[in-house]
Amino acid sequence: MSFLRVENLTHIYNQKTTYSRDAVSNVSFTAEKGEIIGVIGHTGSGKSTLIQHLNGLLKPDEGHIYIDGTDIWADPKKIKNFRFKVGLVFQYPEYQLFDETVYDDIAFGPKNMGMSSEEIEKTVNEIILEVGLSKDYLEKSPFDLSGGEKRRVAIAGVLAMKPEIIAFDEPTAGLDPSGRQMVTDIIRNYRDKYNATVIIVSHSMEDIAALADKILVMNKGKLQMYGTPKEVFSKGLELKEIDLSVPQVTTVFDILRKKGFNLPDNVITVDEAVKLLVNLKQEGCTND
């Protein structure tokens, strides 16, 4: 049995009013422990709505969500337990920082979980290193940090609850290349260390290609595709139809293939591409 199972999930906004629309309709998928799932889709395709269901912030109008075999809405009074099991990092999470020191802000989640103060201290000291900041930061005010540092503190605030499933909404939006790299590293390390299920909503195909084990494509609230990055990104035309793109290297390789180079159609990361091109060049040399 899969660790996370979403079954026929449907959510309708503003039901019974003139503004009613299906935000998510009839979405089913499963995810295992240790998997990173990338969610892509055009703006308004229901990605954010989908992930807000995972920890019970939104209640599905139809369908069920099973975590480790239990329906999270089986007992609505216990929904809070799932808030700790499933972490959610919202878009631009740095705007939700509020406490006097970085330490207190990171400790907010664990405190709500009812951890003892020794445990909290241990966790916070551990997590701050995991997001690539030194312990000196703990005493600073979160409002004195730079944008990228704030983002990492905010992510740390969710990681500190050690969720088994964690969902990120556009974790790299608005960051510079080194900040993006930093955040993707944090996500990957967390998965490796805690064998957590990670769900990432992103517009950056490069980030998704680099991180995800599987990709979920949303279109107008429906699940369009669900497969490995190679499967999904080899259907470039289909993605273009729903206003999505493939990673830039994949496009470059498409053009090269059209020019007659013998290259595969499922190249999605720069590392892979470099290897193939080096090979090609060496072959070319030997042929001469």
């Binding site: 912030l57 808030r83 700790f84 939700q96 907010f108 969710v158 609850m161």
Partner: peptide
């Protein structure tokens, strides 16, 4: 929602 997600 964000604070609720942290158990507030």
């Amino acid at each position: 929602n964000a604070q609720k997600a942290r158990g507030a």
